[in-house]
Design a protein around this nucleic acid. Structure first.
Lengths: 150, 150
DNA sequence: CATCATTAAATTGTGCGCGATACAATATTG
DNA sequence: CAATATTGTATCGCGCACAATTTAATGATG
């Protein structure tokens, strides 16, 4: 029946379109800082936890090394971070903020607020939406790890 | 204050992560059909509206020609569609389903149902979430077109 | 009729996102 | 201690996503 394929479009596509719209909205705010949206996410983690291992960056952001390695190298070329091998386990690479990387934090302070205005959502609505999306992500990851689902 | 940058992480990142989790969930279902997720979206439109112009595909999916031109060419190489110049306006390219492209529709019928099971959401929850995301997308696009927002 | 602005595609370049693979370092097992 | 398995990065290739530029065709204007 045609309805299923049409409804499906409405469902998964809404998420897909919203993400692209949101990252587009970030772009003009991040461009003055010289950051892309995924780079901004990495910087958010670093501003919370300087010196984090690439492995843990991947766990926090659900990104693999194939994505993070070149991204972090671009941040390094931009002078925002430095890479450092762990002394005890040389497989592990830590990412340290440079002074410029730390300084950038102040210029990023206003971004969340500016975007919140554009969203035109009440804080409860926003919290609810965020919770639903987080639950959706968890469910999908669980289903992925666990093949047999109804 | 640190909280703003942390809260922002929770908000925008939830959307970003959910989208990647959802497209990952589609992949094993689409791989047997030889389709990627964006290609699947294009096929959904074509199954509804055969012969649609690439321009109108872009409007429906909010994707530009830089994305759609190579994507449609890959679908053409796969034998699912054919490209055709408009006779009245040769700038316009129409995309027609091939017999194989039309036949693929039947094999895609089960996909929405299979994914719905993995989501573990009630239909009202799902409809509500979809509605919120659609509204979010509309709001962000409007803010983009209309520079001055509080 | 010639010119010009507009529009639609195509092209080019950068940056993800991720599967697959390779490899080195560590941990585990017999 | 030696063989094996696991873990963390790095590399490669493909497919988006999109900005910027180019090309081509249309319609409008002088």
């Amino acid at each position: 029946m045609p309805d299923a394929l049409h409804l499906d479009h409405q469902l998964c596509f809404a998420l897909y379109a919203a993400t692209r719209a949101l990252t587009s909205a970030y772009q003009p705010l991040l461009a003055p800082l010289g950051l892309t949206y995924p780079q901004y996410l990495v910087m958010l983690v670093l501003w919370e936890t300087d010196g984090v291992a690439i492995r843990d960056l991947g766990h926090r952001l659900h990104l693999d090394s194939g994505t993070l390695t070149p991204l972090v190298k671009r941040l390094e070329r931009a002078g925002l971070v430095a890479r450092r091998r762990d002394v005890d386990d040389e497989r592990v690479v830590h990412v340290d903020l440079s002074p410029a990387g730390r300084a950038l934090r102040r210029r990023a302070q206003g971004i969340p607020g500016q975007l919140l205005c554009q969203l035109e959502l009440s804080l409860p609505e926003l919290a609810r939406l965020r919770g639903q999306l987080a639950r959706l992500t968890t469910t999908l990851r669980a289903a992925d790890a666990d093949p047999q689902e109804t």
